[in-house]
């Protein structure tokens, strides 16, 4: 393992754990109000997002295309949360109401995506790598290489944390 990888690992671990702690502190009150399965799903989503964003911060900040894409996505999600728009996975399906405007927007979005989406393996890779849809092929491969490295570190650290929790309990 190279020195840069170790540094990245340490940096990511620190960020991830701090974000986990931050996540845990206000959440303890609200957990009782929802069903357990929903809570876990929501929590897992939040943890995943925290992991990705802390990885993006630890890896390159705004110097890489994929980290920029991840950070902008998390930022927009946070903004949506702050404005009180609850994401769909929290609300049970029976209570969900679909406003016409939003449905139209969603339709438009999917249509646009299908237009943007490219065929073949490169298109698939574009979908997997954050921000990949706007990249040129050479850049896409470069970003993929960096992304794969960072993901490997992320998985290793998360595995360690999860192992630790599950083993210590």
């Amino acid at each position: 393992m190279s020195a840069t990888t170790q540094q990245l690992e340490r940096n990511f671990t620190h960020r991830f754990l701090t974000s986990l702690r931050r996540m845990n502190s206000p959440d303890s009150k609200t957990t009782t109000t929802h069903a357990a399965g929903l809570v876990i799903r929501r929590r897992s989503l939040r943890i995943k997002r925290a992991a990705y964003s802390s990885m993006a911060r630890a890896a390159a900040g705004s110097h890489r295309a994929w980290t920029r894409a991840v950070l902008s996505r998390t930022r927009s999600q946070r903004r949506r949360q702050q404005h009180g728009v609850r994401p769909n996975y929290i609300i049970p399906p029976s209570q969900r109401r679909k406003s016409v405007k939003r449905a139209a927007k969603l339709k438009k979005k999917t249509k646009k995506k299908s237009v943007v989406r490219r065929l073949g393996r490169a298109g698939k890779l574009r979908e997997l790598v954050p921000g990949g849809s706007r990249m040129e092929m050479g850049q896409l491969l470069e970003e993929t290489a960096h992304y794969v490295q960072c993901l490997a570190v992320q998985v290793r650290v998360m595995q360690a944390v999860a192992d630790h929790f599950s083993s210590s309990m």
């Binding site: 799903r41 943890i47 998360m158 999860a162 309990m169």
Partner: peptide, 13 residues
């Protein structure tokens, strides 16, 4: 892993 952490975490926080 995030699912795992989510399942494990609430008891620890």
């Amino acid at each position: 892993l995030s699912m795992k952490l989510a399942a494990v975490n609430p008891r620890i926080d």
